[in-house]
Design a binder for these strands. Structure first.
Lengths: 109, 109
DNA sequence: ATTAATGTTCGTACATTTGCGAACAATAAT
DNA sequence: ATTATTGTTCGCAAATGTACGAACATTAAT
């Protein structure tokens, strides 16, 4: 079976850019690394790890959530944050396709 | 041989965020897709594809270049742009590590 | 010396992002 | 009812990003 290089479709371009933008801040990468390192991740745990105001942490979490990369659920009075597994896999594939774009390309500079 | 999950090092966190940020705009993704689709990519070719002023295109190219993802070389009077293969592979690995972070993780929400 | 071709840089305007503390909301405990 | 706990939202300020046209730089051609 042949592998055909698929260019990213317009909707995929938008989505990968959207997700990349959400990943485009060190604090948000830190949050993801931290989420991956723990079983239980309440907001407070995340906030404790980061040298910034809770309102700022909350905003970064909101950006990750709006991009679909994480999810949060209320466990009154706390909020538990987790990776959004399904969208994370979608993101993995989108970025994989992106990085494969140049695999069979000869260079001219 | 065992595979040990390596958390991203601080310098890697910065770098992946830096690169993600550069990828975080649809136009810049379009530029990369276009670069991948052609053998020869002069500035003019890229500009012709995009519905925006050349100064804007030039800025987007500068962002990609500053992030190390592409390179440009002058072929007077034109400028040829290409992927930066070496850094592109570095980026691929950084993002791959990022997306692998949650591979062995059970969900709690 | 002028003119043409190709891009970059500059100056400006507007929008978005980042960060903070204060105020607020929701629930639980007293 | 009050108070305590946990996060979110609001309002603000500063910084950064996006886009444009004009001006500029470089080289080639006339």
């Amino acid at each position: 079976m042949e592998t055909v290089k698929q260019p990213l479709q317009p909707a995929e371009v938008e989505m990968v850019a959207r997700m990349a933008k959400a990943l485009g801040h060190p604090t948000r990468i830190e949050i993801l690394v931290f989420l991956a390192s723990r079983d239980s991740c309440f907001f407070g745990n995340i906030h404790d790890e980061l040298p910034m105001a809770k309102s700022t942490v909350s905003q970064h979490l909101k950006e990750l959530k709006d991009a679909g990369l994480i999810q949060g659920e209320i466990e009154t009075p706390k909020v538990r944050y987790c990776i959004h597994k399904e969208n994370w896999e979608i993101a993995r594939k989108l970025f994989s396709n992106l990085f494969d774009l140049f695999d069979w390309k000869e260079m001219h500079c």
